[in-house]
Simulated assay, not measured.
Amino acid sequence: MPYAVIAHYRCAESDAPTVQAALTAMQTHTPTEPGNLAYIVHTDTETPPGESSFTLYEQYADEPAFTAHTQTPHFHTHILQTIRPLLTSRTIWTGQTL
């Protein structure tokens, strides 16, 4: 059963170009992974002044495919090392597609 992830990232407006560049790199790498069905990044249009936010929609063939995604070199470089230290908030929702 497909496994979905929705992530909401918020950062300072000054950090948005770095976060956006890292997410763009993830959009290049993630769709090539076995088990990835979708990786879509959105920039939120209603964010308070001085902040930027992004919403990611990810879908995988199953939860093990998502777990494998979190072990890739690009996940470690772009998400763990580049993006997460810049975030002021992060919310993750996971679920199975009906």
Rank of each mutant, 00 (worst) to 15 (best):
P31T: 10
M26F: 08
F66A: 05
S53V: 03
S89P: 00
H29M: 10
E46T: 15
P85M: 14
A21F: 07
T88Y: 03
T43V: 09
H76P: 01
T77A: 15
T43S: 09
W93P: 00
T70F: 04
L80A: 15
P48N: 11
T43F: 00
Q20Y: 04
A38Q: 15
M1K: 12
P49Q: 09
C11W: 00
H42S: 13
L23M: 11
I6T: 14
Q81R: 11
T28I: 14
T55W: 04
A4S: 11
W93K: 14
I79G: 00
F66L: 11
L23P: 01
N36L: 10
Q27F: 00
I40M: 08
P64Q: 04
E58R: 06
S89E: 10
A4Y: 03
D62C: 10
I40E: 14
H78F: 14
A16V: 03
T88K: 10
P34W: 08
A68L: 06
C11F: 05
A68N: 09
G95I: 07
V19M: 05
G95M: 06
A21T: 13
E51T: 13
Y39D: 07
H78Q: 15
Q96A: 05
T43N: 02
E33G: 11
P17D: 12
A22W: 04
Q27N: 07
T47E: 09
A65I: 07
Q59T: 04
A7L: 12
S52Y: 01
Y57H: 13
Y57L: 15
D62T: 04
Y39E: 07
L86W: 02
A38G: 04
E58Q: 14
L23W: 06
P2L: 11
T30L: 06
C11P: 05
P17V: 08
D15M: 01
Y39A: 03
P48R: 12
I6G: 04
G35K: 13
G35L: 11
E13T: 07
L98H: 09
P17G: 10
Q81S: 14
R10Y: 02
